[in-house]
Nucleic acid binder design. Structure first.
Lengths: 199, 199
DNA sequence: AATCAGTACGGAGGTAGCCTCCGTTTTATG
DNA sequence: CATAAAACGGAGGCTACCTCCGTACTGATT
């Protein structure tokens, strides 16, 4: 018993079934309609009543965090790939790109993530993943600092915010890919340390 | 008769009265609770029924645009101040700062502005102010390009998006002023053309 | 197999906000 | 003062949120 398991009773079958159905339905709806989607619709789609949904996931954030779990695992995988890279500057760049994709998983996701990042509310289920990526970003920045790839004034949290902003721009659909690429380049130019200023 | 006035009948007194009361109440509520505030509460506060509110302002955006009018005028005033400046780079910088403040007038404002900027829907009352500031930004960027203060790859629309993003960060309350300042600096470093790379 | 107790289910129902429709009231005008 | 056009306002239909509690299900025990 590592922590909070095996209370002596086998978990009920319907609980697991419903939880899985809810997660499946929720992912579908979040993808299709963004994080603001109707939770009642999710419940109906999963074939359960609203009460069941709220028992499993007391808040929208709880459901979101659970659905996001899959993406978090992808992010970890990306980190392992990135670890293969020799160049710390390149690693940071790829990490920021991965972050941005993570934040763009569902339209409207940046909003609650930001709220969680700021509030540091231990009851918010998004706080944990949020803190995790912030810490990771800080480490990438630290490495890039040591390698001299990034301006000294740049902090990890700043780049977290920048990635979140770009994801917001993307998710709100306000910008075509070209504009987004130029904004990304703008930010990259902003944090990179000039070693060879090309012309 | 310039366009659509003086239809032969004097405008009713109650119409003007109610409109003014609605605008006053709306500004108050937008300031206090953000752009997502309850419109019914606004109506009640203005002392009118919901029907009256919706007759005057058929959509939330219409009300928002009307309330924003005052701020737009402030922005024009800022433009005149900025016009006094000799340096195009300085002018651009101040304009972006003014833009950011404009976008931060109410919490949640960047969202509908972005939607309006993208959709180009002539029925959306926010499209006009949005286009206006985009055009103005493009002009400041053009001037700064000519003066050699800004990288050639940077477009006005990019900086509009950047200002909107910073306003979003600010309004969502996700960042302390220090972080925001560093993000602003990051962006500024990104668009400025390096002439004297300070050490 | 049958019972039992604990757990989970589900949907009814209270709350809130959106927006519309239409009978009533206000208003400018002759 | 009479009249018609214009505006009012609130009732009501809708959707979504979230909770509460009687009922149903499930795993354990005998």
């Amino acid at each position: 018993m590592s922590a909070s398991e095996q209370k002596g009773r086998k978990p009920r079958a319907d609980v697991q079934r419903n939880r899985a159905a809810l997660l499946r339905a929720a992912q579908h709806h979040f993808l299709r309609h963004g994080v603001g989607t109707s939770l009642e619709a999710v419940a109906k789609d999963a074939g359960v009543g609203p009460g069941t949904l709220y028992r499993h996931f007391p808040t929208r954030e709880a459901l979101l965090a659970a659905v996001l779990q899959t993406r978090s695992e992808e992010l970890v995988a990306r980190q392992e790939e990135i670890a293969q890279l020799g160049d710390a500057g390149e690693a940071l760049e790829q990490w920021l790109r991965a972050l941005e994709e993570y934040f763009s998983a569902f339209s409207g996701l940046p909003e609650p993530l930001m709220a969680a990042a700021r509030a540091q509310d231990p009851d918010n289920p998004l706080t944990l993943p949020c803190d995790t990526v912030i810490t990771a970003t800080e480490e990438y920045v630290r490495a890039a600092h040591r390698a001299g790839n990034v301006r000294a004034s740049v902090k990890g949290y700043d780049l977290f915010l920048a990635a979140l902003s770009v994801a917001w721009l993307k998710g709100a659909g306000a910008a075509d890919e070209e504009s987004l690429d130029r904004v990304r380049a703008l930010i990259a130019t902003g944090y990179r340390r000039e070693r060879d200023t090309q012309a």
